[in-house]
Design a protein around this nucleic acid. Structure first.
Lengths: 207, 207
DNA sequence: AAAATAACTTGACCTACATCAATGCGCCAC
DNA sequence: GTGGCGCATTGATGTAGGTCAAGTTATTTT
């Protein structure tokens, strides 16, 4: 029986142990606080105005965190998929109302853990506090890289880099959403794709 | 005697206590690991390729964290000033070589703490681990807000918001640096300023 | 205080990307 | 299958902001 609590916890354990190694007793306590949850394709895990009560771990599936701007534009902020965490961290961490949408773009098999459980774990185990700290550090470094790229690289380069570093995203998400993640319009992404293919074709022909 | 170790530690204590309240004994241990450092205007606290050995607390002064892109563009990522922390967090946290410059734009009176001391404090006190976690959470939320703004708001709005929320930055930093922080050219910022003043003037005249 | 240097302003022109619009294509519903 | 709908492509045109250049004003440096 794939994608249920057991297999999910095994995946979660492996992911968590890459940062901090928990004892079996600690792990048992942690594991007991995560619960299976299913989110069908198209449904929202959270919407602006709600409180983010859980942090989510994706066993399998894909979600998209986005924001609707003042002008009504749909802006994709992050992609989440197998073996990654998701949710509106801002809301979850600060206990303020969510500002983002998080939508399943395919059926999602999830584990989730309540805020109070995460908090209790933080109180109970220094290691848990450290695990979260290390996770936040990683997130922060990633966001800095993205920030630099958005400010310094033109659309074409940002696209090329995403294609190189996260090709699977082009399978999981529509071009519309990838475009908004890259900060451009779908039409522009379409044209970039064609241009890139053309230059690759001519390169092939010349070699 | 202003801006020396004592006054600096008093400021640091106050800032740290807003997140986690330390006992006097804990604080004494923490305080003993921070040391005064002076960075004259124009000098760099760190440059790409170096290892960030310290985390810095600014008693007084201002620095600018920036990056030189592949095309040679100077991109300002963050401003730091009195009572804030600074440094290349990415390098400091991950122990990899710095990718950013951090330059004093005015004489800086600093406190700094070595990586190993921070680490020892993390090992020794769960509270310290929590303090760092909460600090990272705050940083992360701020970066998310900025990311959304960069993707959704046009230059004029980003400028107006910075002017509203951080007017002191316009005293501390040159327009060139503020422009690069906003993701525009200095010429564009100059034009935006004029346009904004014009609309404000007409509004005044009509009231 | 003069000279040198850097910052800011303004104008003319240019380009990357947006917008609008038309057409074609896949995909799900029934 | 076939009707419908959202997604992708392509073309024509618009525009925010970039680039280049010249002049002005601050700010250092000597």
């Amino acid at each position: 029986m794939p994608h249920t609590l057991e297999t999910g916890l095994a995946a979660l354990k492996q992911v968590m142990n890459t940062k901090v190694v928990f004892t079996e007793a600690e792990w048992a306590d942690i594991a007991s606080r995560w619960h299976y949850h299913f989110l069908p394709k198209g449904e929202h895990q959270i919407m602006p105005g709600q409180m983010e009560e859980y942090i989510y771990f994706i066993i399998s599936g894909a979600t998209r965190i986005y924001h609707i701007s003042a002008k009504g534009e749909d802006i994709t902020l992050a992609f989440s998929y197998d073996n990654t965490f998701t949710g509106d961290y801002g809301s979850f961490l600060t206990r303020r109302k969510a500002t983002f949408y998080n939508q399943a773009v395919s059926d999602c098999h999830l584990l989730r853990c309540k805020y109070i459980d995460i908090n209790e774990l933080h109180d109970k185990y220094q290691k848990m506090e450290r695990w979260t700290r290390l996770g936040l550090e990683e997130l922060l470094v990633g966001m800095l890289v993205r920030q630099v790229e958005m400010l310094s690289a033109p659309a074409e380069e940002r696209f090329a880099r995403l294609l190189r570093q996260s090709p699977h995203c082009f399978q999981l998400y529509t071009q519309k959403h990838i475009a908004s993640y890259l900060g451009i319009q779908p039409e522009t992404l379409s044209r970039l794709k064609r241009r890139l293919k053309k230059t690759q074709d001519t390169r092939l022909r010349n070699n």
